[in-house]
Nucleic acid binder design. Sequence first.
DNA 1: CACTTTCAATCAAAACCTGTCAAATATTTC
DNA 2: GAAATATTTGACAGGTTTTGATTGAAAGTG
Lengths: 250, 250
Amino acid sequence: MILDERRHNILQTIETQGFVSLQSLVELVGASESTIRRDLEYLDRIGQIRRTRGGASFTGDSLTGFDERRGQATAEKQAVARVAAGLIQPGEAVLLDGGTTTLEVARQLVGRALHVVTNSLPIVNLLANQPEIELIQIGGYLFPKTGVALGPLAVSALSQIHVRRLFMSVGGITEQGLFNTNTLLVETERQMMLSAEEVVVVTDSSKLGHSALAHLCPLQKVHQLVVDQGITDEWRKILEDAGVKVLVAS
Amino acid sequence: MILDERRHNILQTIETQGFVSLQSLVELVGASESTIRRDLEYLDRIGQIRRTRGGASFTGDSLTGFDERRGQATAEKQAVARVAAGLIQPGEAVLLDGGTTTLEVARQLVGRALHVVTNSLPIVNLLANQPEIELIQIGGYLFPKTGVALGPLAVSALSQIHVRRLFMSVGGITEQGLFNTNTLLVETERQMMLSAEEVVVVTDSSKLGHSALAHLCPLQKVHQLVVDQGITDEWRKILEDAGVKVLVAS
DNA sequence: CACTTTCAATCAAAACCTGTCAAATATTTC
DNA sequence: GAAATATTTGACAGGTTTTGATTGAAAGTG
């Protein structure tokens, strides 16, 4: 098994199981302990997982994230979130997708008078009981681990609402457009795009050039994209040529 | 099982059960007493639980802020919840209304293979990530304080689903029927009743004879009612004459 | 007060991690 | 195509963390 394939395998296992021991990974992929250790170290460094003693755990926005993991929202993500939140006018209605970056955006909204619509359980928990915010929750099948409501019920609910701006996260961006990890999710996000006047993608630069399982839409459908400083001039040009307004957070 | 996973397990158990004895944790995770003690000490130090003699109880900044009333879950409510949960068959689809008693019912469902539909944020937080439970969340305008989704979006979502049993809470019960405190809530609950084959009301006896702002439905629409021992013979007769099957929890 | 249960402290054993190195494999260069 | 170079891999030594057992003290119980 080649390097890339193996790491992909490992990542997927961790994502689906939440926790995986080093030993079980050794058995699963048939490589030595040392190799798996190095893979885990790499995946940790790029922020996809978190190494723990004896194995690794998924670092995605696990809603039960119990320790300091939450503090792992990197400075980049926070910078992106600040810029994104700055786009919002007082009293506006915004739609927030699930994801760690949009969760940071939500954090920036506390105390502002807004209408917020979201299908993300972590965001709902964050904003519930904020007196200034009128919160509309999108229901549906609650996807485990990430706590995002998806599926027909979510799509149907979204079709009944209309907002000024959508803040969306993605799994990957290529010249072919946006991608995400899950077809149910993509379906729901398509309806989100239909319900918003303006589509704002929030992402970190590591997603640029990477694909993912499910194709969401071409670049042309995106109005604005907020990204950290890591973006290359090349990518900036690709995006702007497709009509996307690029905002770099610093 | 790796360290992180074990502590996560422990925390989740404590979070859903409220209190757990050290012995039961030893059995649950299959580690030694010493190890569990150390884990509890750690979780206590980071402020997620409080150690008590013989075990630990949950204190954490609970994901929400809705269940301050947890301690108030009286023995009567728990008894009612146990009886109510006993009605549910394996694999069934149930709809849970918001409310403290229904939250206790939800607590009884942990570990059972069920489809659960609910508009209550505290219940969603409780059951999210329970692997055996398929969770469908009803969205809508999120009512502050109680964390229940209401309004047109909720009604519309409910109209698209169908379940075997509805567990409903009420604000008051008189001979005229059921009452609740809020017209939006009543509207949503009416749709819930349409989506369920059987309507089960869970309540404590103090609600009997008391009215509330909004009339929900006549007694005849209720199939079963679970109540604590405080119910009088007189009330029992009134309910049974209206065709309600009364279950008294002891 | 006697008895039982729970707790904290200690310690050796086991599990795990880091860093290093040589062998194996892939990539580049000529 | 062969040699040179770079990367990846597996093994191992030495150090650190975690674990389970034990013991005496402390806290609850009748």
